[in-house]
């Protein structure tokens, strides 16, 4: 390649093309651009490396099993702490969020892509996307002050009529500050992510397939099932996973809503629960050196979980490019 480049330099007839690297200016500029690209990789690597490095002291000091302990007393001597309760709360609240947000998000995407009157569709899309612009602190404040009082009834109803399902049973008679409410707020927060990504894939469904289904005498819903869903399935899965990644890592809204407790409580409408991110925000300023390191260790676990979820989501989407949809 360098060979052809130097030859081109002497040949005025060949314009400067893609492979042209001969000039100093080009080389410097290219260096900057590549450097910026590589910087992204370096940052991602550095996040992992620094979090591992700084979590080692607490992991060495921990006198119990880091993964199965529910308590959090890292600054005691000997230190006793583990992520079991955090993992539980994070997974449960994110699961509730997914159960609510994925169907609704797909519904919104279908509405905008295929059902809404065409002239207003893009405006409606813009309005639903506005949800994404609301900062999480405001969702937290709203969840605490507006949503929570209005959710009492629903949680109570779940207990009264569905209480025979263990997770809806509420033995305390108190329905606030629960994982359930945190899950609902998270669902609202990830809704724009799920619906926006799903909408993108729906819009890519070739109109030939849509028309092919309609021409066979399919109703609109049958067309959606016949032509839209099979084509969009990978995209829908990865939309859900991107939403999951957001829900797992959300800090402030969850920290404001939960009354942090280091227990594993399957009664999701009762107060309590915790999450990785919320715990870090709440414990940060009262933590000693080992406490900080323990929080960093829990942050590392969160980072790895969201990394895996996001990588899977992106991998599914990137695989889809090879998938020949448009014949």
């Amino acid at each position: 390649m360098s060979n052809t480049a130097t030859e081109n330099e002497h040949d005025p007839l060949i314009p400067h093309g893609h492979q042209q690297t001969g000039r100093v200016g080009d080389r410097i500029f290219r260096g900057f651009a590549s450097g910026a690209g590589i910087f992204v990789l370096v940052i991602m690597g550095a996040i992992g490396a620094f979090l591992i490095w700084k979590s080692i002291p607490s992991l060495q000091a921990d006198s119990t099993n880091f993964f199965t302990t529910t308590e959090w007393f890292p600054d005691d001597n000997p230190a006793v702490f583990g992520i079991a309760a955090l993992l539980f709360g994070t997974v449960i609240s994110a699961t509730i969020a997914m159960v609510l947000a994925v169907p609704v998000g797909i519904g919104i995407a279908l509405f905008i892509a295929f059902y809404a009157p065409r002239p207003v569709a893009s405006t409606l899309a813009f309005i639903t996307d506005l949800l994404a612009a609301v900062p999480s602190i405001i969702f937290g404040l709203w969840g605490l002050a507006v949503l929570m009082p209005n959710m009492q009834g629903t949680a109570q109803w779940l207990n009264d009529y569905l209480g025979w399902i263990p997770i809806f049973d509420n033995t305390l008679g108190i329905y606030s500050k629960s994982l359930f409410i945190a899950g609902v707020v998270l669902a609202i927060m990830v809704l724009p992510t799920v619906s926006a990504v799903t909408r993108e894939v729906f819009i890519q469904v070739p109109s030939e397939h849509v028309e092919g289904a309609l021409a066979l005498g399919a109703t609109r819903w049958e067309m959606v099932r016949m032509a839209v869903f099979p084509f969009s399935l990978p995209g829908m899965i990865s939309a859900a996973m991107l939403g999951l990644g957001r829900a797992l890592g959300e800090t402030i809204a969850v920290a404001l809503i939960l009354s942090a407790a280091f227990t594993i409580n399957w009664h999701i409408t009762e107060p309590g629960g915790n999450s990785f991110a919320a715990n870090i925000a709440l414990k940060w300023n009262e933590a000693g050196p080992i406490g900080l390191s323990a929080l960093i260790a829990s942050g590392l676990v969160l980072f790895l979980i969201t990394l895996v979820v996001n990588m899977l989501a992106r991998w599914i989407v990137s695989r889809r490019k090879d998938f020949s949809g448009a014949n």
């Binding site: 397939h209 092919g212 289904a213 021409a215 066979l216 005498g217 020949s324």
Partner: peptide
């Protein structure tokens, strides 16, 4: 109507999945 009157399009469009 569409069931009674079939249609073949310009570009072949079998459902890919």
């Amino acid at each position: 109507v569409r069931r009674t009157i079939g249609m073949v399009f310009q570009r072949p469009n079998p459902f890919p999945t």
